[in-house]
Simulated assay, not measured.
Amino acid sequence: MSKINWKFYRPYRDKLIDKKNEILSRIFDKNKKDINLVPSKIKRILFLRTDGKIGDYITSSFIFREIKKNYPNIQIDVVADKSLENLLKLNPNIDKYYILNRKKMHEWRNIVKVLRKNKYDVLFDSTEGLKYKQVYLLNRVNAIVNVGYNKDDYKIYNKNIKQNNTLKMIQIYRQMMKSVNVEIKDTKYDVPISEESKKNVAKFLEENNVKDKIIALNFFGASRGRKINEENALIIIKRLGEMYKDYTIIILDSPNDRETIYNILKKTDNKNVLFFEKSKTILDSISIINSSDLVVSLDTSILHIAEGLNKKIMAFYGPKINKNKWRIKEEENILIDYTESRINDVDFEKVFDKLSYENNLSAI
């Protein structure tokens, strides 16, 4: 039996999945009338964060704080994928959160039975993609107002913010809130710091005699094409060591890539490279970033956490559509754009040669 050629199979599989999503979404796409709500009439809001994207949650974190500050009587609930649970439990501005495994339909059905009893005034769905499970949830929860982003073709969203590639995602979030007459002024991120993680990381740094001059280094994005291999990781460590002498480099954890991390540690000749082996959750990475002077990453969740903690950042951005919405601020940071579709096709020696040259010019 011949093997399946996955390279040619995936596009057809993806098309079938998209078609399935479209057909099932239309079944649950219930028409809703446009209603103008005022904050004084809003009692309960539900935020949909079922995509499980940590960076998106951090970027939108100011919303919960600002609602509670200006409208303390509004109850804020969040339904989210389990990957966000450790962050949600530390947010004092969220009244109640519900966790599900987004891949299991029976969990969606069970959570809907609970949520529909809460009689929400507003449901916010800022996810960019659309799965039929989201439309199913909106249909069954039946909030008075459903606010969406880039959901022009769906009737179930009676408030919709159109896609605008010139705006930052923060501005889009503000527009979504304004659609129900909630004004947002302060957009500073809320990045949760776990006291337990903070103590554990402090102990790790003390045991390794690290007091300052720390670089938090992330090698791994969510997709396979954004995971740096051992060869390139060693180049990056070597060049960072040349640019930032006497700095300690701490590799941030990625549970699915631990074997790669251990191989990198074995092969590097830089003795100032560490890894916090006891890391358990994203909260440990946040504590390491909070102790750092520079954060180097290609993963947007790490970049948004670092930006929220006001850290100097070196960011790698690939040729993604609409990437400007998610870009961190350029002031005082180093933003490196690469045109290759896969991160490991980037010539990192050339990238760091250019950085070193630019640094020398700026120092003159």
Rank of each mutant, 00 (worst) to 15 (best):
L309P: 11
L265Q: 00
N93M: 05
I343H: 06
I264D: 01
S291K: 15
F276K: 09
V147Y: 07
N360D: 12
K133A: 12
I251R: 02
G129V: 07
E332H: 07
D347W: 05
L303E: 03
D81A: 15
Y357M: 13
F8G: 05
K113S: 13
E207H: 09
R109I: 14
L100T: 05
R226S: 12
E66P: 05
L283Q: 12
L252G: 01
W326V: 03
L274A: 02
P11V: 03
D14C: 00
Y9L: 15
K131R: 14
E107D: 13
I286Y: 14
R13Q: 12
L309N: 07
V141Q: 03
Y244M: 08
I23H: 08
P92D: 00
M1R: 11
D29H: 01
D269F: 07
I17K: 14
Y9R: 11
D125A: 01
K30F: 12
D347C: 01
I67L: 10
S60D: 06
Y262G: 00
I334V: 15
I313N: 03
K185P: 00
L217W: 06
K133H: 06
N86Y: 11
N263H: 15
P92Y: 04
D121E: 09
L355D: 06
V182R: 01
N290R: 14
K238W: 03
Y173M: 10
F62G: 03
V145K: 08
N93K: 09
M105P: 00
D299I: 00
W326I: 08
M243Q: 11
L252R: 09
A216W: 03
S301R: 02
D152I: 14
L298K: 07
T248I: 10
Y149L: 08
I161M: 01
S341A: 15
N139D: 12
N208L: 04
S61P: 07
L335G: 00
D347I: 04
F348G: 08
N208S: 10
N344S: 13
K213M: 08
R327N: 04
P192C: 12
K159F: 10
T260K: 15
T187A: 07
Y262C: 00
V210K: 04
S341F: 15
L100Y: 07
K278A: 11
L335R: 03
K168A: 12
S194D: 13
I54N: 02
Y9C: 01
D29G: 06
V79K: 11
S301E: 02
F352P: 01
E307K: 09
K203Q: 05
K350W: 00
D29A: 02
M177W: 09
P319A: 07
E230G: 12
S83L: 14
V78I: 15
I288K: 08
K350Y: 11
Y338E: 04
K266C: 02
P72S: 06
E358V: 05
D353N: 15
K267M: 13
V122Q: 02
E349L: 01
L24G: 04
N73M: 11
D212I: 01
N31C: 08
I289W: 10
L37I: 04
Q171P: 07
I321Q: 14
N322R: 06
W108F: 15
S292C: 02
V296F: 04
K213T: 11
N36R: 12
N229H: 10
I111Q: 01
D345Y: 10
R116I: 02
E307W: 03
N263C: 05
E277W: 00
K188N: 14
F275S: 05
V147S: 10
